[in-house]
Nucleic acid binder design. Structure first.
Lengths: 172, 172
DNA sequence: TTGACTCCCATAAATTTCCATGCAATTCCA
DNA sequence: TGGAATTGCATGGAAATTTATGGGAGTCAA
């Protein structure tokens, strides 16, 4: 297990502390944990991106792919590095999210950790629900990539298509 | 034997545990078992898709085809990884299916494991029966198309019938 | 001193680990 | 070939460990 996977919702206590899900902590340790997690505002969502050493290296790699002194690189550098915070994890597996980051993600009393493989995101739970619904729709478009989508021909058997409203994916 | 085949129905106990069929566990181990099975809601059925490391790599491969930091990738990541759960298998070969997944498949007291080669699915037994009946109908349609249906009606004693496909496993 | 932050401990709930039991099929032996 | 022992698997329950979360004491700076 060396990917961030699943979603967890935890509470921010009176002191601003949140438990990082144990499963994520385990990944961070294998990932070359260097005393803190990298965290910065997502570029295109009201959320925070976070990860360990591997994420930091991915960012480096991304930037090194762009020509030195290009506008693009400068902008990306600022966008990515400029806002990065290193959040330290206390003895009980908790972090404190600074105000600047809290603001970007509009965090309230609870936060949702979303595993995305190499990194994870931190969302305000309600907003994440919206995003998830949206993402799910998107996936329907890509289903053929899975080879999962043998749609029955429209003229199929008279039987009601299984589809069934049952699709109610509940929340964590 | 390195693919998931057959179907098995097991019971969910009071604590939400279900035994993964021994035959499937054996496949998982050969598949590069990494501490748990990957499980997520099926895209087009009220069921769960599950598999081992090989399935996880399929997902990774899908995503790595998209550029970092693209909107598309982010959405797909959320939809795929965000819904994925890693179910760990305890010492007795059982898993616990989280509520969010239970809801999607409308699981009750029993679940049916359905081998699909590279992955397997988890169904509510009744629903699976309906689906199976439906699938048979379709297969027969296809046979006609192939002209493959021209078989001598009863399988005479001719030919060394390889006695039992059904090995010891307790099947549905 | 006051306020912010870090470290440490307490606790309740959830999860994991471990052991026991019963059933079914296979194997072994007469 | 028939019947008994054995093995493997699903299942039930209890003990032990983790985890999330709340609160207090100690530390440093303003």
């Amino acid at each position: 297990m060396d990917r961030f996977v699943s979603t967890f919702t935890n509470k921010i206590d009176a002191k601003g502390r949140v438990s990082v899900p144990a499963a994520f902590r385990a990944v961070l340790e294998r990932d070359g944990y260097g005393g803190g997690i990298y965290c910065y505002p997502s570029l295109d969502a009201p959320a925070l991106d976070a990860g360990g050493e591997r994420l930091a290296q991915t960012i480096d790699g991304l930037l090194s792919g762009l020509p030195d002194y290009s506008d693009e690189r400068d902008e990306l550098s600022v966008a990515l590095y400029g806002e990065v915070q290193i959040l330290s994890i206390d003895g009980d597996g908790r972090i404190i999210i600074p105000d600047s980051l809290r603001a970007h993600a509009a965090l309230g009393s609870h936060v949702t950790f979303v595993g995305l493989g190499q990194k994870f995101q931190i969302w305000e739970p309600e907003r994440f629900n919206e995003r998830r619904a949206q993402a799910r729709t998107k996936v329907q478009d890509h289903r053929k990539l899975f080879g999962a989508g043998n749609r029955p021909p429209t003229s199929g058997p008279s039987g009601p298509d299984d589809g069934g409203g049952a699709t109610g994916a509940r929340e964590t």
